[in-house]
Design a protein around this nucleic acid. Structure first.
Length: 314
DNA sequence: TCAATTTGACCCCT
DNA sequence: AGGGGTCAAATTGA
């Protein structure tokens, strides 16, 4: 615990220091490489700090960490039900508080595959959500039968911005796909965030962007146990991420991780593209306790904010 | 042929 | 009562 707090402080402090350094390199004469390096360092620091926050449920604990999936096997529906002998097996109804992760996917370029997080998912349902224009897709780990992996996720396309997908994770991956994820999540370019509906077919793997929101606050490890949140995103580089942090205070900015899709199963998300919907309100609940840093978990890049927007730098 | 997706129905929870 | 999550038969695709 102490170690984590120290590390957290160190990372945040480092982020601040490097940010100051970056300020000194904002002159046109300064080499882009240097600025990029500094940006990377800053991002790395923040990402690490955020990771710590989210990996440590005791630090940033908000929502109940245990989900129905994790806590108990399925309940059998009442015998009297007309479903007869079939297994009308239902887990406890999920509530938003059970989600461990929320991921927002930016990428018009990845409409085919808004979010390939390195795991293989199987779609097991789809529902129209009240108040949402797009249905919500329900996925569970492909390895559930074979490895008993109980991880699940929901994917919805945003009403406000169809290029944005919100992915809610739940449960812990117990399968051995982790390595895929770590190996395949790489930074993406800023362009990917813009509407690139055309080129997505071929490039979505490389151009997809994700915004990871840790509103679940449980354990990021549940989803990205080893993920070394990338910091080299062009999107970030080209953006005013740092400035945004400085301007709005990181607490209100966002934790944003952009990475590309993994090759695990490129087609698995096709349905998402057409099905997914978003419930804008679903990402607003981030009961992160009383820590000031709680806001970190709500960090997000407002898609409407253009990173290229000079206003950020002012 | 088998695996993945679709889709309608069912059940739980608020 | 209705929304949301899940099941599983039917369908689709490789």
């Amino acid at each position: 615990m102490d170690w984590e707090l120290n590390t957290l402080l160190n990372e945040l402090t480092q982020g601040r220091d490097v940010t100051n350094q970056l300020l000194n390199h904002l002159h046109p004469s300064s080499s882009p490489q240097t600025r990029q390096l500094l940006l990377d360092k800053i991002l790395r620091s923040y990402e690490k700090a955020l990771s710590i926050l989210n990996w440590n449920g005791s630090v940033v604990e908000a929502k109940p960490a245990v989900t129905a999936f994790e806590s108990s096997p399925c309940d059998i529906s009442s015998p009297g039900s007309e479903v007869s002998d079939k297994k009308r097996v239902f887990k406890k109804r999920k509530t938003s508080s059970g989600w461990t992760e929320q991921v927002r996917v930016f990428s018009g370029a990845s409409l085919d595959n808004p979010l390939d997080d390195g795991y293989c998912w199987r779609k097991y349902g789809q529902k129209a959500i009240l108040g949402s224009n797009f249905p919500r897709g329900y996925y569970r780990c492909t390895h559930r039968p074979s490895q008993g992996c109980l991880a699940t996720k929901q994917v919805q396309r945003s009403d406000n911005d169809p290029t944005i997908f919100e992915v809610k994770y739940r449960g812990r991956h117990t399968c051995n796909q982790a390595s895929h994820f770590a190996a395949t999540f790489i930074p993406v370019s800023a362009e990917s965030k813009e509407k690139g509906n055309d080129s997505r077919k071929r490039q979505h793997l490389l151009e997809s962007g994700l915004e990871v929101k840790t509103e679940g606050l449980d354990n990021r490890q549940d989803i990205f146990p080893w993920f070394p949140f990338p910091v080299e995103s062009e999107q970030v580089r080209n953006s005013s991420f740092v400035e945004a942090i400085m301007e709005n205070n990181i607490m209100e900015t966002s934790e944003s991780n952009y990475f590309s899709m993994s090759p695990c199963h490129m087609g698995s998300f096709e349905s998402d593209l057409t099905d997914i919907n978003s419930d804008p309100t679903s990402v607003t609940n981030s009961p992160i306790g009383d820590l000031d840093i709680s806001s970190l978990d709500k960090l997000e890049f407002d898609p409407s904010l253009s990173f290229d927007n000079p206003e950020f730098f002012t």
